[in-house]
Design a protein around this nucleic acid. Structure first.
Length: 155
DNA sequence: GCCAACGTTGGC
DNA sequence: GCCAACGTTGGC
C-alpha cells in the first residue's frame, strides 16, 4: 500500500516546471532542515509513494501536480557543503544529520488548485496544509485527501 | 529541563 | 511588508 505525501516548494527556487526539465524528470529533495520533515523522508517514505507538489509563496499558492518517490531516504550532501544555502556545520559525511529522497514527476495539473479552492472542499477539511499555522514542508496526506485532490484536478 | 529570545515560514 | 505561528537555541 503506497502512502501519500505533500511536498512544498517555492517556485522561485524550484517549481514543478523545473522538475519537468530535470533528467528523467527526477530530482533529489535536498535542503530540508526540519526534523519532523526529515523523519518522514528518512523513515517513512517508500518507493512508489505518491506526492502532491505544492507551490508556496506563489501567486496563487496552489497544488500544481503529482510526483512519486523513486529513491528512499539517504544522506543529504548539501548539509556539509559550505557553499550551499542550507549548509549545516553540525553535519558531515560521517554524521549526515539530514536526509532526502528522490522524486519523479508524474503529472502537472492543467489547472493548479489554489488554497482558496481547496478550502471549499469538505473532504479536505482536516488536511494539514489547510490548518492554520501549518508550516511543515513535508506532510503526510490521507488516501482520501489525495484522491479528492486528484478528482478536483480532473473536474 | 525551562523558557525567553530569536529566526523562519508562509499566507495575506 | 506584515505578522501569526511556529521551531531552535542557549543561558540559567
Amino acid at each position: 500500500m503506497p502512502k501519500y505525501w505533500l511536498l512544498k516548494s517555492e517556485p522561485e527556487s524550484f517549481s514543478i516546471q523545473d522538475l519537468a526539465r530535470c533528467p528523467k524528470k527526477t530530482t533529489s529533495w535536498s535542503g530540508v532542515r526540519n526534523y519532523q520533515a526529515r523523519n518522514y523522508m528518512r523513515d517513512e517514505m517508500k518507493t512508489g509513494d505518491r506526492v502532491l507538489f505544492y507551490h508556496s509563496s506563489a501567486d496563487p499558492t496552489a497544488i500544481v501536480g503529482t510526483a512519486k518517490i523513486v529513491k528512499e531516504g539517504y544522506p543529504d550532501p548539501t548539509a556539509w557543503d559550505k557553499n550551499d544555502d542550507h549548509y549545516d556545520p553540525a553535519a558531515s559525511p560521517e554524521n549526515p544529520r539530514w536526509s532526502m529522497v528522490d522524486i519523479q514527476l508524474d503529472e502537472i495539473f492543467k489547472t493548479p488548485l489554489p488554497l482558496e479552492q481547496l478550502r471549499k472542499v469538505a473532504a479536505l477539511k482536516k488536511m494539514e496544509l489547510l490548518r492554520k499555522g501549518s508550516r511543515l514542508s513535508v506532510q503526510p496526506v490521507t488516501k482520501e485527501e489525495f484522491e479528492a485532490v486528484l478528482k478536483l484536478a480532473r473536474s
